[in-house]
């Protein structure tokens, strides 16, 4: 197990190294001089002096190799410099926005679980009926609907037309409902389908036959005997999908003006705030790869067969 953990740590370090090298190369390969772009972004008339001064300040006048070493040093110590816009350290700006994004992703996951349970169990009970067909249709739509469009529809019906729920900002539970639903609805309908299939496949197991022989009703068997076992594989999938919730939150945050990481990065891109963009790439890569590794480790703890690799 220790070896397993060590290997995963090496993987994490390698991925971060790869990502930071790519980040460095992309910014240097991007057309145009970063110093020039930076100056024009601030609407200052670009003078030759200002350009060379800024180039020196950003370390652009040094050789590519020493720039790269500087950058890697920064990554290792988590110093990504200061934001061009707010002049505050990037890492602080990022950390300040993490709770909001986590809150949204967690609630999205909660919505997905609730939908999975309700639709999954009911479609398994009435398998092959009209409810089941509806469930299948919903799963298809759920996997094809663009989240930004779904968010709009929800805002239109619940905020604009009826005024039931607020459409932007963060604070109360009411603020959370629409963004969380936008984030979790599609995934919920897809996993409902998986839960249904998993439950129906379980019906062939001997212990179900035994329950039937004891004269339990079909519905009772499904809810009390099958569900417990069928939910486990779906549950593990939900664990891995937390990462995609975090990813999906970028768009959802932008629609609902949710003050999290996603909204911040989109704003920073529009302002050409390069230190923030760089910091965001490294920070989120670290976050996602860590989540991936933690999930992997939990699986390995639960199932020793997986430790072989």
């Amino acid at each position: 197990m220790i070896l397993f953990c060590l290997k995963r740590m090496v993987q994490l370090i390698l991925v971060i190294f790869l990502v930071s090298t790519l980040t460095f190369l992309l910014l240097r390969l991007a057309p145009g001089d970063p110093a020039y772009i930076l100056l024009t972004a601030h609407d200052v008339p670009v003078s030759e002096d200002a350009l060379t001064a800024l180039q020196k300040e950003l370390g652009l006048s040094e050789s590519l190799g020493s720039q790269y070493i500087q950058w890697i040093k920064g990554v290792v110590t988590w110093q990504f410099g200061a934001s061009y816009v707010s002049k505050e350290p990037v890492i602080e700006e990022l950390l300040r926005r993490v709770p909001a994004t986590l809150e949204l992703a967690m609630s999205g996951l909660a919505v997905a679980v609730i939908i999975t349970l309700i639709i999954g169990i009911s479609t398994a009970i009435y398998a092959n009926g009209w409810l089941d067909m509806t469930g299948r249709l919903m799963a298809l739509l759920g996997s094809s609907i663009p989240s930004f469009w779904l968010g709009f529809l929800l805002i239109y019906f619940f905020s604009v037309q009826n005024g039931w729920l607020p459409s932007m900002g963060r604070g109360t539970l009411q603020h959370l409902i629409l963004p969380a639903t936008t984030l979790g609805l599609g995934m919920g309908t897809i996993y409902a389908r998986l839960l249904r299939t998993s439950m129906l496949e379980m019906l062939n197991q001997p212990f179900i036959k035994a329950a039937k022989a004891r004269g339990l009703s079909n519905r009772r068997i499904l809810v009390f005997h099958v569900f417990k076992h069928a939910f486990l594989p779906v549950m593990t999938l939900l664990g891995t999908s937390f990462a995609s919730m975090l990813g999906g939150s970028i768009i959802v945050e932008s629609i609902f003006s949710w003050p999290g990481l996603g909204k911040y990065i989109v704003e920073s891109i529009n302002m050409r705030d390069y230190p923030v963009i760089q910091g965001y790439v490294i920070f989120t890569s670290f976050l996602f790869v860590s989540i991936h590794i933690v999930v992997d480790m939990i699986y390995a703890l639960l199932d020793p067969r997986l430790r072989v690799h």
């Binding site: 990502v19 991007a30 990462a243 995609s244 990813g247």
Partner: peptide, 25 residues
């Protein structure tokens, strides 16, 4: 492959947005 697996842990949308951010919209 381990390296690829690791990068795949980062959702597509996050990496794409980051790369577009660096190259410019």
């Amino acid at each position: 492959m381990r390296l690829i697996d690791g990068t795949l842990a980062i959702p597509d949308i996050v990496l794409t947005i980051a790369i577009v951010g660096m190259l410019g919209p």
